[in-house]
């Protein structure tokens, strides 16, 4: 346990805080998993027009950048692995 701690960068406190921030934003926005899935498919479809992407391993997330307090504008983050820039 002590040994593992030396090599770990983030404390469990920070992990908990980061997880909660992301979790609560999607909770608060009240975005259903189905809707997230639909947004994801639509984004993949549009991007696919211009470049070859790995739609399987793409991820989307609703999060806040300026964090702190409720009521600030949440943002949608998408991480899309590109397989080939020129289609």
């Amino acid at each position: 346990m002590e040994f593992a701690r030396i090599f770990r960068k983030k404390s469990s406190r920070e992990i908990a805080k980061d997880r909660l921030k992301i979790l609560l934003i999607s909770d608060r926005v009240n975005c259903s998993p189905e809707m997230m899935e639909m947004i994801k498919t639509d984004i993949a479809k549009v991007i696919s027009k211009y470049m070859k992407i790995d739609a399987q391993s793409m991820e989307i997330q609703i999060t806040k950048t300026g964090i702190k307090g409720r009521g600030k504008t949440p943002s949608l983050y998408a991480s899309i692995p590109i397989l080939d820039l020129n289609k």
């Binding site: 404390s11 469990s12 406190r13 920070e14 908990a16 805080k17 909660l20 921030k21 609560l24 702190k68 307090g69 409720r70």
Partner: peptide, 18 residues
């Protein structure tokens, strides 16, 4: 646990719940 960084601090919780 807070001291060891293994538990969220009171201000972490207040920050989140606002």
């Amino acid at each position: 646990m807070v001291k060891r960084g293994e538990m969220m601090t009171a201000s972490d919780v207040v920050d989140i719940l606002a």
